[in-house]
Simulated assay, not measured.
Amino acid sequence: MSQNSRNIYGGQAVIEGVMFAGRHANVTAVRRKNNEIVFYEVPRTTKTWVQKLKKVPLVRGVVAILESSAKGSQHLNFSMETYAEDEVPPEKAEEQSEIKETKPEEKSGWSLSMVVGVAVAGIISFIVGKLVFTVVPAAVEELIFGRAFSNIIVHNLIEGGIKILFLLGYLYIISLTPLIKRLFQYHGAEHKVISAYEAGVDLTVANVQKFTRLHYRCGSSFMVFSVLVGVIVYSFFHWDSMWERIYIRVLLLPVVLGFSYEALRVTNSMRELPVLRYLGYPGLWLQKLTTKEPNDDQVAVSIASFNRMLELDRQGTPPQLVKV
């Protein structure tokens, strides 16, 4: 089966696992310390008005990003809870087990209020992080070079360079920690499985491992585009003080995100063209930091998550919220 005849899927690495988003459900598979693979399945339901917004150019990018942050945080939280349970000493695990047995209502999984709470927290975390990443480089550039020259474009280029340095430094530092390194390996496993599926090969560990860990549709590419697009968008607006400069950037943040999303869509759709394919290269280069080569066990978890997601898609009806 050709790639064009297949659905386009995306995913996300979580702690000791991978999440894939299907048409009817988002599925996470996590490997526990005893090598058991557990699943977390969330029905994929979207309000009608959200679906309409996702068809509007520029607006659909912001909607998709916020939706991804909300849903992704649920699965990340599940993986963190599972990881934390495995890290609990045996004696404490027995005590917690006894407590849970006295409260059977807690065995039913996440309540709706818990899911909504985690989703909102994920959106807020994304917004706060994006604001910090937008404001701090602008303030640093203004403090260092604010009176050095008056050319706005040069100021924006320097600001973009500072953002890139901040981003690379942050990713490099966190990649040195064992937990994040494994997270980046699962990120690589997610990309390999999607590439193998799009190539139409059987999803075996041996087949999947032959593919690259880099992928054009990755969110890492979006981060690069947001910096480059920001340089262009901000050049149309003049400021007279640092606070005015920061104020403008905060107001224009949705615009930058919207254009960045569209740019990512264009580069992905044209990646087979000899010249335009190079537009996606900066994002692929950044993925050399955000992904690592996975081992066979990590690829097996990614395959398990993807296959379960495909199984739910074939059933055609959204499942109930469940932890398996």
Rank of each mutant, 00 (worst) to 15 (best):
E198W: 09
S195I: 06
E98P: 05
T28A: 07
M19H: 00
F306H: 02
V118S: 03
P104I: 05
S241N: 01
S73I: 00
A206M: 12
M242G: 03
V227Q: 02
P274V: 10
V132C: 10
K55C: 07
V128L: 10
K292P: 03
K181A: 15
E36W: 02
T102V: 09
K292S: 09
L53Y: 06
L179Q: 08
N151G: 03
V208T: 08
A29H: 03
E106P: 04
I162V: 12
A300S: 13
E198Y: 15
T48N: 06
V256N: 10
L251E: 15
H191S: 01
F222G: 01
L66Q: 11
L176H: 13
R182P: 00
L257V: 06
L228M: 09
L203S: 06
N207S: 07
L165G: 09
S97P: 14
K210V: 09
L276A: 09
K130R: 15
H215A: 10
Y186I: 00
L183I: 03
A119C: 11
N35A: 14
E95K: 04
I180L: 04
K71T: 13
S125G: 15
V250R: 08
L257H: 09
P318Q: 04
R31P: 12
I164F: 11
E95I: 14
L176N: 11
G160A: 14
S68N: 09
Y281W: 13
P254D: 13
V27S: 01
S305H: 00
E41A: 03
K107H: 14
A21Q: 15
A206Q: 13
L252T: 15
P57G: 08
E141Y: 01
V27K: 01
V132G: 14
F126H: 13
I99A: 10
E81T: 05
S220R: 01
L143W: 12
E105M: 01
G129D: 07
K55M: 05
K163V: 11
R6A: 14
W110F: 04
M223Q: 10
T177Y: 01
L228P: 04
P89M: 07
R31T: 12
I173F: 10
L214I: 02
E16L: 00
G161Q: 05
T290H: 03
L273A: 07
A189K: 00
V250W: 05
Q315F: 06
A148F: 05
P294M: 15
P43T: 08
I158T: 01
S69P: 00
V38R: 02
E142W: 12
S305C: 02
P318C: 10
R277L: 02
L203D: 11
M114I: 04
A64I: 02
Q12D: 11
I246R: 07
V229E: 06
Q96D: 11
T291V: 01
L131E: 14
K292F: 13
I180F: 02
N151V: 04
A84L: 05
T48S: 11
V56E: 07
R31K: 15
D313H: 02
V231G: 03
